[in-house]
Design a protein around this nucleic acid. Sequence first.
DNA 1: TGGACTTCGTTAGGAAGTTAACTAACGAAG
DNA 2: CTTCGTTAGTTAACTTCCTAACGAAGTCCA
Lengths: 390, 390
Amino acid sequence: MDLSESARAVFAVLAAAGTATRPQLAAGAGLSKPTVSSAVAELEAAELAECSGTVSGATGRSAAVYGLGPAAGAVLAVDLGPAVTRVRGCALDGTLLAEGTGTRPDAAEVVRHVLKELPTGAPLRAVVVAVGDVITQDAEGAGARPATAKAGPLFDAMAVALPPGVPVHVENNVNCAALAELHEGAARGRDTFGYLRIGVGIGLGVVIGGQVLRGANGAAGEVARLPYPWDGDREPRREGLEEHIGARSLLRRAADAWRDADGPCPRTAERLFALAGEGHVTARTAVGRHAAEIGRLAAAAAAVLDPGLIVLGGAIGADPQLLPGVRAELARLSWPTEVVNSALGESGTVVGAARLAVARGIETVTGGVEAKPRPESGFQTVTGGVRVKH
Amino acid sequence: MDLSESARAVFAVLAAAGTATRPQLAAGAGLSKPTVSSAVAELEAAELAECSGTVSGATGRSAAVYGLGPAAGAVLAVDLGPAVTRVRGCALDGTLLAEGTGTRPDAAEVVRHVLKELPTGAPLRAVVVAVGDVITQDAEGAGARPATAKAGPLFDAMAVALPPGVPVHVENNVNCAALAELHEGAARGRDTFGYLRIGVGIGLGVVIGGQVLRGANGAAGEVARLPYPWDGDREPRREGLEEHIGARSLLRRAADAWRDADGPCPRTAERLFALAGEGHVTARTAVGRHAAEIGRLAAAAAAVLDPGLIVLGGAIGADPQLLPGVRAELARLSWPTEVVNSALGESGTVVGAARLAVARGIETVTGGVEAKPRPESGFQTVTGGVRVKH
DNA sequence: TGGACTTCGTTAGGAAGTTAACTAACGAAG
DNA sequence: CTTCGTTAGTTAACTTCCTAACGAAGTCCA
């Protein structure tokens, strides 16, 4: 466990790539061929990496392909949702090793089940727990407990299933989902955007330069506290906006506008959107109005951050019927900003938590060594005709 | 001009410190004593550094003190304000070398005057121009012109006075002022905060992790576009908030509430605040109401960013009479967030532009090499009894 | 089937920086 | 005035990683 600096850098690149040849590792880590060779030898000796075959390009000698070895280990991601608990175990290259879902009280059971399915012998390097609460500070260490008011007891009930001695990190679920959209969702290729989640509550995940913005109190993106209503003669209420834009409010306003001829009044947002999709006039009007309100919320975020892209998610926000209305209101009020729907839906939070857990897990191996890719070459882009042998 | 990597790192540390001994340079740059010795020799040969004396601590051998040499050069900062143009010439360690102020049309004249006072022979390494406009992208190179609609002609009139071949950067004036507060103003010691400027217009400078947030369109912090008025039945207007919170609106509302017994109605914000300071009831009421509105604006920023600190600046915002009202409304609506007044006032923008220019100027020497301080030691803290010889 | 060509990986020599030990300079105590 | 402890700066051996050149292992084509 005494890796050289260059071996650590190579490991980071290898974990990010999943599998890579030595030339690719050299380009990714900004190291020369001889250095990579010795680093790879070091990693193989520690069983952190292993050769998984060879690839041949169009011409030239075939290159050995390396992947993570058994000692690389795994990480665990837990999404303690309001109703459902989702758990994922991943390798350090991000591949899914085991998965489980359960109702809220079963959290500990699901965690145990997923842990059992992970390869034995490989160390568990990190655990990330996503909760729907403001995270005061990153809680770390064995048995660390988040200082969260709402999610505290739930976290404790789940934590008993975790093996001792593993670093546990707690993160806001909206931030996790934002990270997921960044790396494998609608914001891929960006490095700055806002993830706006509209459901029963509302929240904004802010990603700037590839990093989640947490804020001084861990409350960045808690847009429930935007001043609303805001007008010359009215006093804003604390968390007035959440009440106004949350799912309940949408249903209540739809019910107020509902007429006898409209048929049975929808009792869930899902039903309301379905009716609107079928062309139901009153439902469409309610959805359109709500889209404008969400557009205003997006405009508030854009006025402060100018993120260039806003990804809409959450039980309500993810519905594509909102897009035109949101875009129109945002364009009317603010800067040119793309608006798209979440690409990951409900699983975004676990996926993001897993991303975070993988990053933390890699850090436990590399000790935070950064890789700086070589300026000129970059990864070799193979256009075609790559043959792989195992 | 062919410095080694370590010499560049040492130069960056030296410029940041102004003067430093070799042990201090070693700690600051994260290099060993022998390496620093050769780096300093290199810098002395290039006249980028020179020995300026010695210091003796309480015990032990006295150390040589180094400062910037004549070849280090200077930078220029220009604040193209709405009425006044401020210009500063600085050395790369930030010391003020020359200063000038003029009315708006005299910009070119002031620039020429300040340039003449800079030491001859030393290269001008960078120019930063602060304008009251959204900067689409960082305009660079000789004779580069910002793509700013409002400030374009003014910039051109000033640019004729700049020597050719010097990199010119354009930056938003609120962002500049925020940087000034960060480094030598009310936000010293922080690395994340918001600088809220309230004058005729309104603007927010966002600093996160010591970096100014610019946004996808360079429009981060353009809070004029927060949705206002925002209520169930009212449609927000584009830039409605600026109209509502700007100086003109404050005076108009004060005038509306003014009674005959109140004496002459104030025609400037300054006069209104003076009356309020004397205890004038109607004036106080108007100021108090406006403080609440500013508190709401601050709450909007806090809801998205959770900066932990908001610095109030600008012709109106800098008045301390607003503080209690702003704090109260912000506390009512949002997270625990400090609110203080600007410590630099009107000169903040040039000071920040100079900071930025110094940073750019250093980059022209170092090529962007980062210094990573040594973990354990840090700068030697001399508690007392330091004698300096020249 | 045997060059010609291309790419992978290793070997050898050199550049840059680090640690460790030593010398130099300075103040204070005896 | 000498001696001792402390800090500054230099010298020397060692480490790390780079460049350059070479051998190895492939594909393509006549």
